[in-house]
Amino acid sequence: MSDEDTIGAGDRHDLLAAEYVLGVLGAEERRQAEFRLASEPGFAAEVASWEARLGGLAEGIPAVAPPAMVWEGIEARLSASLKPVTEHAGIWQSLAFWRTFAIASAALAAASMAGLVYLAQAPSQRAPLLARLNAGSGQASFVAAVSEGGDRVTIIPAALLSGDQQKAFELWLIPPRDKPHSLGLIDPSRPVRINVPKSLLPQVNSNAVLAVSLEPPGGSPTGQPTGPVIANGKLASL
């Protein structure tokens, strides 16, 4: 009773998006899906639909602490140890870990992703913002989608970054004529959802730029980018 025999090619194609959202794919298939997510709008739309369909599964999970606290915890772990970050690969690579803290926002994020899909039917809603964060070479390194309320940013790696394991990747919001504001650390190997601090909400609009810089483990010690900016891009309405 093999699927290959009984599930049509078209369905198999659609199911990859569902399998990606569910998180059941092995590492290699997952990388392929992430590549297609960044390069094929049709596939990205399919992923958004499945996020919307399955997001309700996260219901019933109590809300978790705000990401700031999560990050503080991670920072504490990292700075408490003189060992290289690679020693912590377990928690950084653990899908369960990412899910646990992403899950409370999954339903809302799914709703916002669904906004991308339903936009045509609801033109009065505020248009979601997207940004393509390009490296100096002009190649996209990350794709970012902002929820309708502007309060959540989903940032998806679009290229395989041969990461320096000693460095953290920090996301910045740069309003026009303003200094960068940190949105927190991101993972170059998987999508991360970030809650935007309330104080920054008014700045999340199509005039702002998102940028990613390389920072010491735990993030920038100064509150401003201290390492090279490896990718940046302007937010734009869909």
Binding site: M1, S2, D3, E19, L22, A58, L95, A96
Partner: peptide
């Protein structure tokens, strides 16, 4: 969805062949 388990992990947990688990989920 909730545990973030891969097909392989789910198959092992349920003690069924990998193909069976894929088939159930798909």
């Amino acid at each position: 969805f909730l545990d973030g388990s891969t097909y392989e992990e789910l198959a092992k947990k349920a003690s069924v062949p990998l193909g069976t688990m894929k088939s159930w989920i798909r």
